[in-house]
Amino acid sequence: MQENFFALLEEILHTPQISKRFALFESLLSSLSSLCLDHTYTIRHIGSPIYQGICKIVHPTKISRPKILKNDTAMASFLHSIAHIEYSAIDLALDASYRFRNLPMEFYLNWIEVAKEEIQHFQMLRSLLQRIGFDYGDFEVHSNLFDAMKATPIFADRMALVHRGLEAGGLDANPFVVQKVSKSSHHLRDEILQVLQVILKDEISHVSKGDKWWKFSNDSRSFEEILRHYSYTPPKILNTQARLQCGFSPDELSSLQNFHLPHSI
């Protein structure tokens, strides 16, 4: 009897131990071509972040972010914040593959590929953390990405808000993050910059997939309507070059740069 793709994904999504869930994911990858996709498989909802037993979750405003990366603790705090985004993004990709049914096989393969790359990003960042005496879970985190995932069980909303909206915000932040690291004299600076370059390249691919499947949804609402529905405002400064590579049009970028929520007029 063939194993069910969705059942295996569910096990990964509900496994809290990092090493075990990554091993389960590798097992899924190795057997991917032989799995059956039973789209009638019942969806088991995720009530709380899988990392809640590893990290202390606080409100985003309670998290201190070092302005200057002058020592190991400051650099570890910085690396931890990025590692947490990547770890959260693993679940975003896995949940997209698990939650949305009766879609082309390309959709499931796309988000499994994204999950694989997010795992690689997390492992690279965690390795750097460990080399300076820290590990994932040593600093406080927020649950913004999990909250956005939980709030968007509708396919079009997930693709628009999360994979085309929030994840594109990571592209916008990348140049500033690189600049911050470049100013540091930390002995791992050059290796960290290399990892950030890998992440940027892969994230362009990830947002491109969000763009593709948002357009596939053929939703009657505009992208900006969905952003406004969830009270999400894009960053003031957009990485226009990266966003153009992902499928955003010049007119759309111009509109996003002048984006505002009704209450902020």
Rank of each mutant, 00 (worst) to 15 (best):
F5H: 02
E10A: 00
I12S: 01
P16W: 12
Q17Y: 08
I18R: 12
E26S: 13
L32K: 13
L37I: 07
I43L: 15
G47W: 05
P49N: 11
I50H: 03
Q52A: 10
C55M: 07
C55V: 15
I57F: 02
P60F: 04
T61F: 11
T61N: 13
S64F: 08
K70R: 11
K70H: 13
M75K: 04
M75D: 06
A76K: 05
A76W: 04
S77I: 01
F78G: 05
H80N: 12
S81M: 09
S81W: 00
A83P: 07
I85S: 06
A89G: 12
I90F: 10
D91G: 04
L92R: 03
A96G: 05
L103R: 04
E106M: 09
E106H: 07
L109S: 14
N110T: 14
W111M: 06
I112W: 02
A115W: 01
K116I: 00
L125G: 04
R126G: 01
Y136E: 08
E140Y: 02
V141C: 10
H142Q: 09
N144H: 07
N144L: 14
L145I: 15
L145R: 12
A148H: 08
M149C: 09
K150A: 14
A151Y: 03
T152E: 04
D157P: 01
D157M: 01
M159C: 13
H163R: 07
G169R: 03
G170M: 09
L171K: 08
V181G: 06
S182C: 01
K183S: 11
S185M: 11
I192V: 15
Q194A: 14
Q197V: 03
K201G: 03
I204F: 02
S205L: 12
K209G: 02
G210C: 05
D211A: 07
F216K: 01
S217M: 07
S220K: 12
R221Y: 09
S222F: 04
E225F: 03
I226A: 05
R228W: 00
R228D: 03
Y232F: 15
Y232T: 03
T233S: 14
Q241T: 14
Q241W: 03
Q241Y: 09
L244N: 08
G247I: 06
F248R: 03
S249R: 11
E252A: 14
E252K: 13
E252I: 07
L253T: 06
S255M: 09
N258G: 13
N258K: 14
F259M: 08
H263R: 10
I265S: 13
